[in-house]
């Protein structure tokens, strides 16, 4: 009675099922790579540590890559569920508030100026700086443009406008950097970086991004109950006791931390935050608070799967994760539009 009937995998079975899927894909990711070693030998090298080159490959290349895939995917999936819940719109995605574009700009500037070459932390830290500037701008702009309830267009409307402005400006500045880049090698490095990838990442990226992402996850987890009430609209939610300005602050800061950190270490990976909440919404009965953890696990699974796919499809060519995701994401996006238009 207390548990609504939902999809094929319902209620309490959903999260464990997604967790198992993540675990399987994680293992597959660790076992996938150009170093041609058997699964058994790879696992022995990973856990026992024979000190040979295979141990190095497993522990310093494949393991951090898979861990980063989980972290990035969970951040993007969680942020996507939160922004869709906050804006009450299934077409919203975390990049909408301009944090990805700004983190990207920070990283691009670091590559262009050569700061990125000064240390392993320089690139992600520049990305964080870009995300921080974006958050300050978005909060400043949206607080002025649409805070109060106004004919059903409350804080969400102001946030979209501010996000579009910040995204467009960061995108323009990124193009300007490429445009004026005197160094073709830097330009090509920037272009490849912007495509998004988990290749050649190390534990340094993991330990840099994880604390910031964790802050973002905690902030977004605290939006859960308010997002449920927001299902009925901003007015009804406010009358039910939701503090809308606080909710907006939690959502923006949470997404900025989770997605800013992801972009800073992995580049721009689109579509995860859009597609994953859409795919899982039916299975959680549409309830936003239940969609948050489900989308985090689903995002991790999707990024792990895509990162395995880029290594299997074109092992010789370094197919970028962001490109792969966009190729897979577009048909799903079209399907989403189709479903919305036909009222499913």
């Amino acid at each position: 009675m207390s548990r609504p009937v939902t999809g094929p995998v319902t209620g309490r079975a959903l999260l464990p099922a997604l967790a198992v899927l993540c675990a399987v894909l994680f293992a597959a990711s660790v076992l996938t790579g150009p170093a041609d070693a058997g699964a058994r030998a790879s696992l022995v090298a990973l856990f026992r540590g024979d000190g040979g080159p295979l141990t190095l490959v497993m522990r310093e290349i494949r393991l951090p890559r898979a861990v980063l895939g989980v972290l990035a995917g969970a951040s993007l999936g969680l942020a996507g569920a939160a922004i869709q819940g906050f804006l009450r719109n299934p077409l919203a995605e975390p990049g909408l508030i301009g944090v990805s574009a700004s983190a990207g700009l920070g990283a691009v500037l670091a590559i262009q100026t050569g700061i990125a070459a000064t240390g392993a932390l320089a690139l992600p830290l520049s990305g964080f700086a870009g995300a921080l500037v974006a958050v300050a701008l978005i909060l400043g702009l949206s607080a002025r443009s649409g805070d109060a309830l106004d004919a059903g267009r409350g804080g969400g409307f102001g946030l979209i406008l501010a996000g579009i402005a910040v995204s467009a400006f960061a995108g323009a500045l990124t193009s300007l950097v490429l445009n004026l880049s005197p160094n073709p090698f830097a330009a090509s490095e920037i272009v490849f970086w912007m495509m998004g990838s988990l290749a050649d990442r190390s534990w340094i990226e993991v330990w840099t991004a994880l604390p910031v992402m964790a802050v973002g996850w905690v902030l977004l987890a605290r939006t859960a109950r308010d997002l449920d009430a927001l299902t009925l609209g901003e007015e009804a939610a406010a009358s039910l006791g939701v503090n809308l300005p606080r909710l907006r602050l939690l959502t923006v800061l949470g997404i900025a931390a989770a997605v800013g950190a992801t972009t800073a270490v992995a580049g721009a990976i689109g579509f995860v935050g859009l597609v994953v909440p859409h795919l899982l919404r039916g299975a959680v009965g549409g309830v936003p608070s239940r969609l948050l953890p489900a989308s985090a696990l689903g995002g991790a699974a999707l990024v792990l799967a895509a990162d395995i796919a880029v290594r299997l499809i074109l092992p010789e060519r370094d197919l970028k994760l962001g490109v792969m995701m966009a190729l897979v994401g577009t048909p799903v996006f079209l399907h989403l539009i189709h479903r919305i238009r036909h009222g499913a």
Partner: peptide
């Protein structure tokens, strides 16, 4: 005080029972 606004759009396909339960939030 409970308030029924004029806006009647429900954003997500939540079950009727879940919707009614939102009233218990406070």
């Amino acid at each position: 005080a409970a308030y029924l606004p004029q806006a009647r759009d429900v954003a997500w396909p939540i079950a009727v029972e879940t919707l009614v339960r939102l009233g218990r939030r406070a």
